[in-house]
Write a protein that binds this DNA or RNA. Structure first.
Lengths: 246, 246
DNA sequence: TGAGTTTCTCAGGAAAATCACAGACTCCGG
DNA sequence: CCGGAGTCTGTGATTTTCCTGAGAAACTCA
């Protein structure tokens, strides 16, 4: 089931209308804090654990609809945690966090069951998007919820990564796509450059803050070019997207 | 009966609309886990057993529509398990798992009865495809569901392994065929290289991830050569297939 | 066994994406 | 009308990602 919050964002809810429950497992406190905050902002109910033992215990009583699980835990291997958790919650989808380089071999087979992974350092948009995908597909949320965002005559499909305005297909790069997704998930709302940076770029991004301006400029060329503009600047505040009409 | 899930994939269902039930029997926990996960993702209901005794017992109460049965079990021979199971469930189709070098003539006699087998190490696409075939042919699922995948002017027959585009037959190697089948079973959806690797290559594949790129390149030469391309790259995300028109 | 086929690794090169930098531009108050 | 803060965007360097040819190894089938 989806519902529209007063802010205009659509939230995932479970079939009975209660909020989605997510368990976050990572040994770095800064990561669990970061994720918990971002996921709570999605309207989800969050619990976190710092090791495998805690994870299994919390999973048992909290019965989450999805789990974010770091592969590197101090007390036990991510796969072990997975196995024990699966015994209790066979259908819960898992989003794995892995280091960029440790990837290939350890991940093997994990996405096969419908699970997914992101590499550290990740962007929050990425984590949230993938979690939404997992939850949507797992059936914990209402199946009618689909993967297409619509603002005015602009559509963005999260499954096919296709974007079109007034029926005309538009090719976006990965970063452009994530930026637009963030804007479209918060239509008619001013988003500051800091918010955008925190959300769309990975948490360890150390570059110039004006990448945001740059990418907004890219997006405008592709989306607003020669049309009624949908992306607007609020000087000193940030940017917002809204249907062209108004 | 088939139905279309929100992801656009078609699921097999029993005539009464309930999910298909599959029993997985293998003594290696990692194998039953892997299969259970993948088969659950197909929307099926899964039980697993680690030995012959457990298999027969579970079969009796679970009454599966199909069984995946390892020929090498600790307590009894696969054939014995099969015989005892058949006494209770005479019509249930069985997919045998065998070691690569195992004597094939023993299996040959068995598959005459409509059963099938795959050799370890298998790919999940292979197992899922064969199971779907077995279930389809056994009549546990609606018979109208057929074995031809169609995307635009491209068709792939899972029974005859025939592929053609715009009426013109195309010869594919085994790996190319499985890759294309996976793409076509998920049209218009971006599939990451990791997903493809997990699904199309065998679970013990330890090689370079760029085999996926290589085989995509082979497929393009055969399917897209000189035509409107159907296989598309989403840089940084993966690949997807869709009708040429759009 | 041996020829043809298939699978896969490796590596070079092409293409695309990301980002820093800097100058141009715009808005707004004085 | 001027100046400054804030924003926009062209240029190009760097990095990342992808494509594909060549050839080795494994496999298949007669």
């Amino acid at each position: 089931m989806t519902t529209t919050s007063p802010q205009g964002r659509t939230e995932l809810l479970r079939p009975d209308g209660s909020p989605v429950r997510v368990l976050v497992v990572d040994d770095e406190l800064s990561i669990t804090e970061l994720l918990s905050m971002a996921l709570r902002y999605e309207g989800w109910q969050i619990r976190s654990a710092g090791d495998g033992t805690g994870a299994i215990q919390t999973a048992r009583e909290f019965r989450p609809d999805a789990v974010v699980l770091d592969m590197m835990l101090p007390d036990m291997d991510g796969l072990t945690v997975l196995g024990r958790m699966r015994r209790e919650l066979p259908d819960v989808p898992v989003l794995f966090l892995t280091a960029k380089d440790a990837v290939e071999d350890r991940i093997a087979g994990l996405t096969a069951g419908g699970d997914d992974y992101v590499t550290k350092p990740f962007s929050l948009e990425e984590v949230v998007a993938r979690l939404r995908g997992l939850i949507r597909r797992s059936g914990a949320a209402d199946r009618r919820s689909d993967s297409v965002l619509i603002v005015g005559d602009l559509t963005l499909d999260e499954d096919s990564h296709e974007v079109s305005r007034a029926g005309e297909g538009i090719h976006l790069t990965a970063t452009e796509f994530e930026l637009l997704r963030f804007l479209m998930r918060n239509p008619r709302r001013v988003l500051s450059k800091a918010q955008i940076l925190d959300r769309v770029w990975s948490y360890d991004f150390g570059g110039q803050a004006n990448v945001v301006e740059l990418y907004i400029s890219y997006l405008r060329r592709k989306i607003d070019a020669g049309r009624e503009p949908m992306i607007h600047t609020r000087r000193g505040a940030g940017y917002l997207i809204k249907p062209a009409a108004s």
